[in-house]
Nucleic acid binder design. Structure first.
Lengths: 202, 202
DNA sequence: GGACTAAACGGACCGCAGTCCGATTATTAT
DNA sequence: ATAATAATCGGACTGCGGTCCGTTTAGTCC
């Protein structure tokens, strides 16, 4: 988790990080994972986190900016893995399969992802102003748009991608499964049906 | 806004409302509309509202339950008017037109509605746990589902309605228009395209 | 009118996310 | 080693939504 900088002056890039700052970040991430494992993401408050990690509250916010930022950091590993799979992995999720098949696979994988990391994802998006500025969310949407074009979608792929992305919103998916009691497979089936109809068109 | 109860005992229904309670509710609604007219819905805090209306903070919450509840109350008039139009009004929005045409009209009207009352609607849905328990939202979704069935949708109309409703989420629509700078007409066009493809199917 | 009761009242209080600024400490140059 | 400097630290503070409970008051029954 630490590395020796090749260049002392560190040309290009943030001007390095002080050792205590790095130590505190690790402490905070560890404490956050502990608390989430114990009581779930919703019970993680910034005060409790600071106390558990043995640092001041200001430190938490300087490190992660906000609660949502912390959650995004916690998600970033699995998030990056997921991104790698649909961008560079084997088909049908990755490149090599027709657009429609990749779309179907994408939805299925995303639903599975939300079932696993949903609470975290929801917490990461619950930033007051911008639920749609989250980089990962924007990337997904552009990916869907790309696949739509590849599948021959002619009419406003950007907005179609927006609509399809709305369907995969973690909040909605979790509500459907946890509150409405729908089976995840049913969501997957419905997604397949939806994108098929949208792509095949009138 | 007030009426004389026909039966003193008030069979069936809440056990009447005390006069001071009614007076305070009117005061609060008036003050809320003032504040919103002055600074917009986001600047309306429950403390300010209580102060402006000349009542205690506890009174505000007993009256409306929560900030979201207050916003829903403020919306209820225009909300009811909208509902009446798509349930009993003239076609193509109301009954009498084919399902697909009604769906298209519904989306267009909803987009227009959000452009007008969007901030309020967003505030009304921003209750932590349940953005989807709002009665109006549930009604819309069931209405979409009904229209889908009427238009001959065979595959899981409930989930298809859920996906389509997600497209019409106020938060998303406002973000598309205000942040992304998309023209509302483009949203309407895309909606028409979307529902047409979904209904006409594979 | 006067007593009784249930409801409404109000504002102190809580936990939360996020901000601010004086004190502290790691780092670099001398 | 020492001083200078810039980043980090910590916790008091703010504003918010929401809760609680002792006090007040409207409606009712005699």
């Amino acid at each position: 988790m630490s590395f020796i900088p090749l260049l002392p002056g560190s040309l290009s890039g943030p001007p390095a990080e002080r050792s205590d700052a790095a130590r505190n970040r690790e402490r905070l991430l560890g404490a956050a994972r502990e608390l989430i494992a114990e009581c779930g993401p919703d019970a993680l408050t910034m005060d409790r986190l600071a106390e558990r990690a043995g640092v001041g509250k200001g430190t938490v916010f300087r490190r992660f900016g906000s609660r949502a930022g912390l959650m995004m950091t916690l998600l970033s590993d699995s998030e990056a893995a997921f991104q790698a799979r649909f961008m560079f992995g084997p088909p049908p999720l990755g490149p090599g399969a027709p657009g429609l098949e990749r779309l179907i696979a994408f939805g299925a994988e995303r639903i599975a992802y939300v079932m696993e990391h949903g609470d975290l994802a929801r917490a990461a998006e619950s930033s007051a102003h911008s639920r749609y500025e989250v980089p990962a969310v924007m990337l997904w949407q552009r990916h869907i748009e790309h696949l739509l074009r590849e599948a021959g979608m002619d009419a406003d792929p950007l907005l179609m991608a927006m609509s399809l992305a709305a369907t995969l919103d973690p909040d909605r998916l979790l509500h459907a499964v946890r509150v409405q009691g729908l089976a995840p497979e049913r969501l997957t089936d419905s997604w397949r049906e939806l994108v098929t109809r949208v792509v095949r068109g009138r």
